[in-house]
Design a protein around this nucleic acid. Structure first.
Length: 253
DNA sequence: CCAGACGTTGTT
DNA sequence: GTCTGG
DNA sequence: CCAGACGTTGTT
DNA sequence: GTCTGG
């Protein structure tokens, strides 16, 4: 799944180039983006030009009288989003991209708990990024909620699909990642549904790398470079004591 | 017909 | 808006 | 996603 | 256990 991600590496100029934007977007590095927050999205405007906008992460479909609780609907299953009442209209008419340089997953390590420690072992955070360091584009849906009186809400959700072999070490779902070629078709309003389904099937996911990171990322209020650093040595798992990128046992799931 | 939900995730 | 349950 | 609150009363 | 906030 995808409930936390980073967009910290690329500066505005790089984002402009990578996504074909007219102007560089306002953006300062974010290491710990969470549901409910304002995130960066890219859509195709009426003339086909790329447009960038900040949207609340957590879709607010236009027909709801009240927005769902903050951050709900932050993912939609790619397999069913075209049919689900909450996502159908956005799938048909309002697709978008979410720029990212990686996403986080949490998993309990197999060799915990420590003998003598009470309770279940905690889930540990991992960061997943492109093996070549490229900027990623998640496939997403967008909506604009215009209530009578209150302020309008621009919102978005990230599509999820089955985890590839790399991510499957820690989790069974992951965000849909598009290649630059696929992005064109995903944003094109004339792309037929059958093709859209192919695009988000996860077939073309780039090679990813997975590393254990500092549990500082657990707290969504913590937003700093240490979200991406290796876990500090510490309460005792052999894995968390390793240095540098940490290999993960291949079949937790 | 009207009323009320409409989601994903993980966990057991 | 659209579907399900009563 | 994870972390942290979750309430009422009376008093200042 | 469940909901809210980040």
């Amino acid at each position: 799944m995808c409930g936390r991600y980073s967009l910290a590496g690329p500066d505005p100029a790089e984002l402009r180039t990578r996504f074909g934007l007219r102007e560089a977007p306002e953006w300062t590095p974010r290491y710990n983006l969470a549901p409910g927050e304002a995130i960066l999205t890219v859509t195709a405007g009426p003339d086909g030009a790329r447009e960038v906008a900040r949207r609340r992460w957590g879709l607010v479909p236009p027909f709801l009288e009240q927005p769902p609780r903050s951050g709900a609907l932050f993912n939609a299953r790619a397999e069913t989003a075209a049919e689900k009442p909450l996502f159908r209209a956005a799938f048909a008419r309002s697709r978008c991209l979410i720029p990212a340089d990686g996403f986080y997953e949490w998993a309990r390590l197999p060799d915990e708990p420590i003998p003598g420690a009470p309770g279940r072992p905690p889930r540990r955070p991992f960061h997943v990024s492109a093996a070549d360091g490229a900027i990623l584009a998640f496939a997403g849906l967008a909506a604009l909620w215009r209530p009578g009186t209150a302020e309008a809400i621009a919102s978005t959700t990230i599509l999820t699909t089955v985890a590839n072999a790399t991510v499957a070490a820690v989790h069974h779902r992951m965000p849909v990642i598009l290649t630059p070629e696929q992005e064109l078709e995903w944003l094109d309003p004339t792309t037929p549904v059958g093709r859209l389904r192919e695009l988000i099937s996860g077939e073309a996911t780039p090679t990813l790398s997975l590393v254990a990171v500092n549990p500082a990322v657990n707290d969504a209020r913590h937003d700093g470079p240490d979200c991406l650093t290796p876990p500090p040595p510490g309460p005792p798992t052999s894995r968390s004591r390793a240095r540098g990128p940490v290999a993960v046992a291949p079949t937790l799931f």
